[in-house]
């Protein structure tokens, strides 16, 4: 696989950075790819903008940040306004429609899924929205194999919440399957 770039964005407390770590670990440790994960964040532990970037490649990865993302996840309105437009032609923007109504013009395919609402409905807790989002990202792309992602989720979440998170991942995959159109990118 040549260089692929994924940007996950939202606000502090949504588990954005953990989501990126899990994606990178699935690809690197269980998927045989090179992976780099970086993040930018503010001084707040909760709230404030949160952005996590993952670069995957068969080749060695030089520049560790995203140049033009193939996949953009936006988990709140501010993230949608700032990042949805950056996606590469033919790329995918995954929007948490629980919080985002309007998506700026973009050259990529826009997939709206009420990610946080799914978390609430299925599990009664928003905290697994990041894992649902990961399932959607993986389900819509060929970035990582499902078994690799499942192993990474199981390794990185607290043991007591492992089953919950694996179920959340499944909810994400099923939501992705319901989105019409070809798998991209």
């Amino acid at each position: 696989m040549s260089r692929r770039e994924i940007r996950l964005s939202g606000e502090g407390g949504q588990g954005i950075i953990l989501g990126g770590i899990i994606l990178a670990e699935a690809a690197a440790v269980h998927g045989g790819l090179n992976a780099v994960q970086t993040q930018s964040y503010g001084p707040e532990s909760r709230g404030g903008a949160s952005r996590c970037e993952v670069v995957l490649s068969r080749e060695a990865i030089d520049y560790p940040k995203v140049i033009r993302p193939d996949v953009v996840l936006v988990m709140n309105r501010e993230a949608a306004d700032r990042y949805a437009g950056d996606v590469s032609p033919g790329g995918t923007v995954i929007v948490d429609s629980t919080f985002v109504e309007e998506v700026p013009d973009t050259v990529g395919r826009v997939c709206r899924v009420p990610i946080t609402r799914l978390a609430r409905e299925h599990f009664g807790r928003e905290i697994v929205a990041n894992i649902i989002a990961l399932g959607i990202v993986a389900g819509l792309t060929d970035l990582v194999r499902r078994d690799a992602l499942e192993r990474a989720v199981a390794d990185r979440v607290p043991p007591a919440t492992r089953d919950l998170n694996l179920k959340a991942l499944d909810v994400g995959y099923r939501a992705a399957a319901e989105i019409p159109g070809p798998a991209t990118p």
């Binding site: 770590i21 990178a24 670990e25 690197a28 440790v29 790819l33 090179n34 992976a35 780099v36 994960q37 970086t38 993040q39 990865i61 560790p64 940040k65």
Partner: peptide, 9 residues
């Protein structure tokens, strides 16, 4: 900050 916080394979 980049190298320190970056995760890499």
């Amino acid at each position: 900050e980049v190298i320190a916080h970056m995760r890499e394979k």
